[in-house]
């Protein structure tokens, strides 16, 4: 288990929080607790209430979607990435299922406490939301490229 002093250092080194102000790191550290997931453990399911936001410290997580009775892996996340951005939205539920592909070590943050902290200190909230927006934008872009099916023998889908 990470001690509180080391927790601050761990957060400072996490890629998602690069450039975060020290005071904001301290605020996050006060809310963080370390969690572990076993290989193949489902971390959350699609439609679950968005309760936790995670910063992955080690291991690999798959985002999965089930359609027509099939489960498809659409993205994998690794150390230095975040998981569960929807917990920052009060009325949101999980958009994908998340499954640990390896043993995963992460820091977990309660979504309600995180939202409360954002309300209490707008500068903290803005810094966090900017990073989350960047994550959402890059995933949206990646999914658009996936939809194009670039490597299809027929070439990218254009209609």
């Amino acid at each position: 288990m990470i001690k509180s002093k080391n927790l601050v250092e761990t957060l400072k080194e996490h890629a998602f929080l690069a450039g975060f102000r020290p005071a904001h790191i301290d605020r996050l550290a006060a809310m963080a607790h370390e969690v572990h997931f076993e290989r193949d453990q489902v971390i959350f399911r699609e439609g679950d209430e968005s309760s936790f936001f995670y910063l992955i410290l080690s291991g690999k997580v798959a985002l999965e979607v089930t359609a027509l009775g099939k489960t498809l892996r659409v993205q994998t996340l690794r150390e230095g990435e975040e998981l569960g951005w929807s917990s920052a939205m009060e009325t949101s539920s999980k958009h994908f299922q998340a499954r640990a592909l390896t043993v995963v070590r992460a820091l977990a943050f309660d979504g309600a406490r995180l939202r409360e902290a954002c309300e209490q200190e707008c500068a903290f909230g803005y810094a966090l939301m900017r990073r989350l927006l960047s994550v959402v934008a890059s995933r949206l872009q990646a999914f658009r490229l996936q939809l194009l099916d670039m490597y299809s023998p027929e070439g990218p889908k254009t209609s």
Binding site: A15, K60, A62, L63, E64, T71, L72, R73, V74, Q75, T76, R78, G80, E81, L101, T102, S138, Q141, A142, L145, Q146, D149, M150, Y151
Partner: peptide
Amino acid sequence: NTVDYGGLSWRGNVGVVTTLFRH
């Protein structure tokens, strides 16, 4: 390596090649 779509037996990376730049 990464693949755009992976089935349940694939334990490697999933996502377009540009997502690998983060690593």
